[in-house]
């Protein structure tokens, strides 16, 4: 990775908090993610990783603190406005448009960024830019052969790849991937790692992942989330060596 560090990080979380009633799920997270970094969030079940993603992407309203995207405050604004600013995400549980074809799924995700918005006067089939972009992405995620199948009938691993396709279709500069390898076989995971490596070039990547092999392989930096707090945020080597991380989390998982 070239170290072209800009003073403004792609993503800056300051004192981010989220409570559900009396339950404090996220307890004041401060985290800077420089542009172009591949950053992984790890942590035990219930640590608040998915909640953190929901806060950043606008799915949940934070109870306190702020989220800045390239310096702009996006705290608590609706997800569609965050998406339009170039932050895109995938979901832990496959979240597609099941009745639409693979082609239609990806094309829908390209439309806003290409400026077609709510147009009800142009034939969608004749939008050359949307067609090109859709084809590009389907080739990139290796689903071009499946383009005319409904997303709902794809194999699980294909659906996960399509999930990535939807996330990158808008040409977002910041990508949040929530457990992209969940439930995949060993071979499928390898393909997915390659795909993520490819799509995260020239992008900022923030991903949640349980598979430590994947995390140490892909990530430039790792943050460890335990009970709603980041207890360490460092390079994979130092995280491995970190005693408090070992105690809280890694000891049982990494041989």
């Amino acid at each position: 990775m070239t170290q072209t560090k800009t003073p403004v990080p792609a993503l800056r979380l300051s004192g981010l908090e989220k409570s559900f009633g009396p339950m404090k799920i996220i307890r004041g997270i401060d985290l800077d993610i420089p542009a172009g970094e591949r950053h992984a969030v790890i942590g035990p079940n219930g640590a608040g990783k998915s909640t953190l993603f929901h806060l950043i992407s606008g799915h949940y309203q934070p109870s306190g603190g702020s989220v800045r995207l390239h310096g702009d405050d996006i705290t608590g604004i609706p997800p569609q406005l965050i998406a339009r600013r170039g932050l895109s995400r995938s979901f832990q549980v496959t979240n597609l448009f099941p009745q639409l074809t693979v082609w239609e799924n990806v094309r829908c995700a390209t439309l806003w960024a290409l400026g077609h918005k709510y147009s009800f006067w142009r034939n969608v089939e004749r939008l050359a830019d949307a067609r090109q972009r859709t084809e590009e992405i389907l080739r990139e995620i290796n689903l071009i052969e499946r383009w005319n199948m409904p997303a709902g009938v794809l194999a699980y691993a294909e659906q996960r790849a399509l999930e990535i396709g939807l996330a990158i279709a808008s040409n977002a500069n910041t990508l949040l991937l929530d457990e992209p390898m969940a439930g995949m076989s060993h071979g499928e995971t390898e393909h997915m790692v390659e795909l993520i490596r490819k799509v995260s070039e020239n992008r900022t990547l923030l991903m949640i992942e349980h598979d430590m092999g994947v995390v140490f392989d892909l990530a430039d930096r790792i943050s460890v989330l335990v009970y709603g707090e980041v207890i360490a945020s460092d390079t994979p080597e130092r995280i491995k060596a970190n005693a408090s991380v070992q105690q809280a989390y890694l000891g049982t998982e990494v041989a």
């Binding site: 569609q80 998406a83 995400r89 829908c108 279709a169 808008s170």
Partner: peptide
């Protein structure tokens, strides 16, 4: 829900 994350209200 997913539509909101591809930029549409």
């Amino acid at each position: 829900e997913r539509v909101r994350f591809i930029g549409y209200n």
